[in-house]
Design a protein around this nucleic acid. Structure first.
Lengths: 157, 157, 157, 157
DNA sequence: TTTT
DNA sequence: TTTT
């Protein structure tokens, strides 16, 4: 009976960090900037950047680690989650993160903004770009044929 | 490299129709009304209702067939799809539908508006209400423990 | 070139707090719970609740203050924002909030769960319930007539 | 009490058509392709493209007319609307459209896929690219100062 | 602190 | 055909 959904389009602040838990599960972290432009009371253009902590798990983590680079523009769909941790002084702190369940690279392949000579995307992963989408990847029926079975679909409990 | 996402909160115009394909796959259809209110140029309140054709497949279809009733308020997440068919005169026609991949019943259990003696929800399905959510159902990690494996997650290709 | 959008359906943990800035601008704060259910590795049903800090400004703040009560189910659309403040020890802390730009009361009027004798919603505001929607309030054209101009975009009544 | 929201990221099939109603209101139309990739039962990669009819009004129409070109990748937020019309034989037909209330150009300026020598975006509008965002344009408060009033909500510049 |  |  509830919904917790986040949709972001922004640019990576750094290359993702890809790590593995003790049991071998992949987890990727990166920060994503969204910037809004607005006019202040004096009519001057202003902008404000918000930084989001993104975390991805398992296959999506692997894809983020392989294909995303600093500056890259991505679409992220996920949910908001706040978790607690202890800082060095033993105080309980909270951090809010976006747990991604879909990621789509935007712009064209090779179109990252990492600047400099190397050209981020190609360097990270020379293979052809592939979609990082998740539950959006269901096949579609045509004329009410049954859609091909998709294990990602519709598992409600 | 693309996103096709629809989010609706509205009321069912009728009980869903639950059918099965030749191969036994469940498919549910229902119409969903969303109504917006606005003021016209004269400042008079107006409203306009939009009717959406919703289609759900497999487990989500079964849940819709069991638990949803006319008048019920639901949250639907899915994608837009236009398919073609031939009308009785052999002309090609198009119909746009929302292929649901998540459904959440809103309001409280038993809070449907089917009127009449029986009380719609209970009559349709006396068992305990259960969430019809899909990909929102992933577990969440706490303090960066690895989340329990969820086969619905993150299958990007 | 960026998008920062949050969609929540959840229940208020308490009645909203409505305050005014020095210059007279209304601001409402409330916490909203979203709960997800999932099965753990042992197949046992689990649930996890996430608490979201919601902030609304101006007219939407007034509406939240008037009509929302503890337990009420609402739809919130807004954006994520992290702001900093100093705690009592002078340390910089961060808090992530959802700045609402749309709110819709879900369920039926009078359908709140504040319990107690009076019946929360009615007690808070005896007038007829009205939609708190924002930018969803645009009129719609019919057959490509020009839609009536709507000065009320983002103004809920 | 209802929500009708669509979020699309896709590519324009053609340059937009910008027209004006008798009373001088701008309206832009264009088609937008979203493509999903999936694997069929045999494990072969498939893709399916969905075409969406987008309509924008007033300032957003002008911006679309000025800045968007065939092939350009955009983010669209809006609502679903079905309107009726009569075909040449006098039969009532229906068309489903997305009425946009926000548009964001994705990728980098100059990054359109119109191919050919000229380079679509620059040719259409030599001025600096500007955000086409709408209600996302609200300013954000810092440390609970009142946000600057923004008359530009839903007005893109 | 909510809700099912 | 729903709902407020």
């Amino acid at each position: 009976m509830s919904v917790n959904k986040v949709i972001l389009v922004g640019n990576l602040g750094k290359d993702p960090e890809l790590r593995y838990t003790a049991s071998g599960t992949a987890v990727a972290n990166f920060s994503l900037a969204t910037t809004e432009r607005f006019k202040d009371r004096d009519g001057n253009s202003q902008e404000k950047t918000e930084w989001h902590n993104i975390v991805a798990w398992r296959q999506l983590a692997e894809i983020c680690g392989k294909y995303l680079t600093k500056g890259r523009q991505v679409y992220i769909e996920g949910k908001i989650q706040t978790r607690s941790y202890e800082d060095r002084d033993g105080n309980k702190r909270y951090i809010t993160e976006i747990v991604a369940d879909q990621m789509q690279m935007l712009g064209r392949a090779g179109d990252d903004n990492s600047g400099g000579g190397g050209g981020g995307y190609q360097r990270r992963e020379p293979r052809q770009e592939r979609s990082g989408g998740g539950s959006n990847n269901q096949p579609r029926q045509t004329e009410y044929e049954e859609p091909p079975f998709n294990p990602d679909d519709d598992i409600p409990f």
